[in-house]
Simulated assay, not measured.
Amino acid sequence: MTGWIDAHHHLWDLNAVHYPWLMAKGVERFFGDPSPIQRNYLLSEFSADAQAQGIRASVHIQVGAEDGMVEAQWVQSVADANPHWPMAQVVFCDLTAPDLMDQLDAFQHLSTVRGVRQIVGRAPGEDAQTGTNALLDDPRFLTGLQEAGRQGLSFDLQLIPELYEKTARVLAKAPDTHVALCHAGSPHDRSSEGLSEWAKNLRTLSDLPHVTCKLSGLGMFDHHWSTQSIRPIVETCLDQFGAHRTMYGSNFPVDSLYSDYATLMKAYAELIPEEAKSAVFRETAKRFYQL
């Protein structure tokens, strides 16, 4: 494998950008204990691991910085300083903000920006505290989603299965905004019944032609995952979205809490049929993020 693209990863320099969630000490998160990744994670480390597995380009996804623009400008500076590593980015933007147009205009001045992300749902327990699910009932969110599409920006969607149906109704009203479904839609109940219900509900999103699925972050709800444990998720996504609407993402360094990069790629290489590899590991992300 060579020339592949990692369509979902993070980087952080704790001296350059402030991440409140990352610096919180002794706080257990839905994805586990973050203490092993409470350190700088720079392009040199990520690209060394990824390149060894045939990755040659990537997409940086915003990761909860205190100031989304500061993070975006820092990512731009990293990309500018490393022209040998093609990297696009998805930035944080509050689509309900009164100055949304100004924010989107400012982001458009950064050559690496391809889309925006505003998390709708992370995990049931955390969502109850953050209230992010309420975005789906806010008419400003839909208006912002439509505006992002008008400006040629995609939207990275992170949510949980309980929100699929309501989200699908919102997305159907923004058909010109290309949507990337992060982490296969975060199927957090990994029982056979849970995965069956997830697969059934996933149809509400996969039936929308402007939604593309990311095979990423599958370790966050299965810290002891194996190739076999994630098999039904990978197979369901490929069945519903097709390889042309499915792309690979490592979600590193978060998913480095559960495995190394080589182990992750080996699992996906085994699960994804040979005829689908070119699309899942390269072509879908290349097209979606204009790499």
Rank of each mutant, 00 (worst) to 15 (best):
S77H: 02
T227M: 06
R231D: 13
L43D: 06
I119T: 15
R231K: 15
T284W: 02
F30N: 14
L264K: 06
G68H: 04
H109Q: 15
R39W: 01
E235I: 00
R169Y: 00
V120G: 05
G125K: 14
P161V: 03
L14P: 13
H60V: 14
W12L: 11
G68I: 03
R117S: 11
R39G: 06
V170H: 09
G219M: 05
G54I: 10
D222H: 06
L95S: 10
K200A: 14
L14M: 15
T284Y: 02
D67T: 03
N133A: 14
H210M: 04
V254L: 14
D127K: 02
M265E: 01
S191H: 01
L95C: 10
S44H: 10
V254R: 11
N251I: 04
R287M: 07
D239Y: 08
D6P: 02
A276P: 00
G64T: 00
W12M: 11
E275Q: 14
Q76G: 03
L157T: 07
V91L: 07
W4H: 14
M101V: 15
A97N: 13
A128E: 14
L110N: 07
Q38E: 08
F31S: 01
Q51W: 10
F92D: 10
K200V: 09
A97D: 15
D137Y: 00
F288R: 01
W198G: 04
A48V: 01
A199Q: 11
W198Y: 15
S206L: 05
A16E: 13
P124E: 09
F252W: 14
F141K: 07
L142E: 06
W12I: 10
H224D: 15
F46S: 07
D67E: 10
H84W: 05
R122T: 13
A7K: 03
L271A: 13
H8C: 13
G32W: 08
P36C: 07
A79E: 06
L22V: 02
D156S: 05
A262F: 00
R140H: 15
I5R: 03
E71W: 05
R169D: 12
A172G: 12
S259C: 15
T236Q: 02
G54F: 06
F252L: 09
A123K: 02
S259H: 08
D176I: 00
R245E: 08
N251A: 09
F241E: 09
